[in-house]
């Protein structure tokens, strides 16, 4: 349905339910954790794709698996979580050896970065995960080094900053000024777009983070540079049957984040649409 989006990966691997074991959980500050699993079968995925993650210890509650962008794939797939509710609270308390199920890989990955284009990433909080994986894919493929604009409320809301620095040029903004430029990450984007304009470079923006941040980024890019977003919505199944993850389209109707996203051209999305709980 969304002709504007093309999956980066030509070798689409078959989605499957993988029974895995938690190998390692690393806490980053008080709210963030990286969970690394051990999977007998390698999960073949591209940056931007996600997994539905559920501990087999949950029983009937929490009930639904949680959609999480893949931070890495292969035989030791990992995710970055922020504790926001019961599911992530349980994940943050789980210990190595705990059995999990990962339904993966799901959704469409980031689209290819066009030739001679400067990739500009705008990341907010846990939204850094699919962008870090994309930066790592670019680095290993000898692609262009992305400029990453990374924002958070405080210096504690910038997980995986060191890993990000290893594969990209990073600029930081925090709302309280505890690290980098004081203010929102969109201030950095404004400057970055001016710079690439001055250097007559082509740029493409990839963004993942809170809804309000991505809406602001999409608005700044519109008519100026292409922008792709990885949307986050409540999700029931992750594979296209519950229809619980609609994303309103500008042209009317909906796209489904799980099968047509999560990576979408920002211009197809109706950003003004009010969310129920917002």
């Amino acid at each position: 349905m969304s002709g504007a989006v093309t999956a980066a990966s030509d070798c689409r691997s078959v989605r499957a339910l993988h029974r895995v074991t938690l190998k390692d959980r690393k806490a980053i500050g008080s709210a963030y954790h990286v969970l690394t699993f051990e999977s007998a079968e390698p999960i073949v995925a591209s940056a931007g794709q996600f997994a539905m993650v559920r501990s087999e210890t949950w029983g009937s509650a929490p009930l639904l698996p949680r959609p999480m962008s893949l931070l890495s794939a292969g035989k030791d797939p990992s995710i970055l979580i922020k504790v926001v509710g019961e599911g992530t609270r349980r994940m943050a308390a789980s210990a190595p050896g705990e059995p999990y199920q990962l339904l993966a890989p799901l959704g469409k990955s980031w689209s290819k970065i066009p030739a001679a284009t400067r990739p500009v990433f705008v990341a907010g909080g846990v939204g850094v995960a699919p962008l870090l994986l994309l930066a790592e894919e670019l680095a290993s493929a000898g692609g262009p080094k992305p400029l990453v604009l990374y924002g958070g409320r405080t210096a504690h809301d910038l997980p995986l900053l060191d890993q990000l620095r290893a594969v990209s040029d990073v600029r930081i903004a925090t709302e309280d000024g505890s690290a980098g430029t004081k203010g929102r990450v969109t201030v950095l984007l404004s400057a970055a777009l001016d710079e690439v304009g001055v250097h007559n470079q082509l740029a493409k923006v990839y963004t993942c983070g809170p809804h309000a941040m991505m809406a602001a980024v999409a608005a700044m890019c519109e008519g100026r540079v292409p922008c792709e977003v990885s949307v986050e919505t409540p999700m029931g199944c992750g594979y296209g049957v519950c229809l619980g993850c609609p994303v309103p389209k500008v042209s009317g109707g909906f796209l489904y984040a799980c099968t047509e996203g999560p990576c979408l051209d920002a211009t197809v999305i109706d950003w003004g649409h009010r969310k129920a709980g917002a």
């Binding site: 919505t233 999700m235 009317g252 109707g253 969310k275």
Partner: peptide
């Protein structure tokens, strides 16, 4: 087309 989001909780 179905209802507006959010549709599930």
């Amino acid at each position: 087309a179905g209802n507006n989001p959010d549709r599930i909780a």
